[in-house]
């Protein structure tokens, strides 16, 4: 892993200087704020006869909406900031400029994953804090440890998706093509997770497990954790394998 620390430092700087960190954090924060506020103020924006028909919203309604927004719109934001991570660098020539230095191609890929993962995790942590604060204040007590577990599982889910996006980004030189491939792969993963026999072993199970934990004791899904970690390792290896054979 020659040059890994230098490349990670550069990736982190890039996340700050290109405002990617602020953009993703802003979007995630919006979801963290909007979800509890929407449920709290919804009765004030609809006619009284409709209010009477509405159920009393609970913490779980907020959490489900928040998680849905993060895993759909949040994921789109993450795809947008990361789809060109390798593809664009190969296309514009910066990858060649860096990789003709004493740097391993594996370090180049791992540094990308670390940089993008940290951006996503920081955004997720801040969104989680805000959502926890608003939900507790507006809807009553939220199990803090369960909320933390939800975010750890969400974090792992996002990192897994980032590894898939990086693999797609290493396969093609066009960032839009890479983004499209990644979107198809992630949607494909979501569809596969709906199959009863397989669903418990897919990374998407992390999200549902986390949500269930906030509601109360839930059956564990450690296999989904293991599979996600496996997907990350396999995607990193394949990205390295592909990049090793690509002409720069």
């Amino acid at each position: 892993m020659t040059g890994l620390s230098v490349l990670i430092k550069k990736e982190l700087k890039e996340q700050l200087k290109t405002y990617k960190l602020f953009i993703v954090t802003g979007i995630f924060l919006l979801f963290g704020i909007v979800s509890p506020l929407t449920f709290y103020f919804l009765p004030e924006f609809v006619p009284e006869e409709v209010v009477a028909m509405l159920p009393a919203f609970t913490v779980m309604d907020v959490v489900k909406e928040y998680v849905e927004m993060l895993s759909f719109m949040g994921m789109l934001a993450v795809i947008l900031i990361s789809m060109g991570a390798i593809a664009t660098e190969r296309d514009c020539g910066t990858a060649a400029m860096v990789l003709c230095k004493p740097v391993g191609r594996g370090s180049f890929i791992v540094a990308k994953l670390v940089g993008l993962s940290l951006t996503t995790i920081v955004a997720l942590a801040l969104a989680g804090l805000v959502c926890y604060g608003y939900t507790s204040f507006l809807f009553g007590e939220v199990n803090g440890w369960a909320f933390l577990a939800l975010h750890l599982l969400l974090g792992l889910f996002f990192v897994t998706c980032l590894a898939v996006i990086l693999l797609c980004s290493s396969l093609v030189k066009n960032e839009l093509a890479a983004g499209g491939m990644a979107l198809v792969a992630i949607i494909g993963g979501a569809i596969v997770s709906g199959i009863p026999a397989i669903g418990d072993y897919t990374p998407n199970r992390l999200v549902s497990w986390g949500t269930e934990l906030v509601a109360g004791p839930a059956p564990s899904a450690w296999w989904a954790v293991a599979v996600s970690l496996g997907v990350i390792v396999v995607c990193l290896f394949l990205s390295w394998f592909v990049l090793q054979r690509k002409e720069l």
Binding site: G3, V6, L7, K9, K10, E14, K17, T18, C92, G93, T94, A96, M97, V98, C100, K101, P102, V103
Partner: peptide, 30 residues
């Protein structure tokens, strides 16, 4: 790669870096 230097036909840089920052980055890579 420790022993060579390379200038491509159209050198590409990280446009968000300053000239000095890029040189320092390359120095750190070496």
């Amino acid at each position: 790669r420790r022993k060579i230097g390379y200038l491509p036909e159209e050198p590409s840089f990280y446009n968000w870096m300053s000239g000095r920052e890029f040189l320092s980055f390359v120095g750190e890579l070496h």
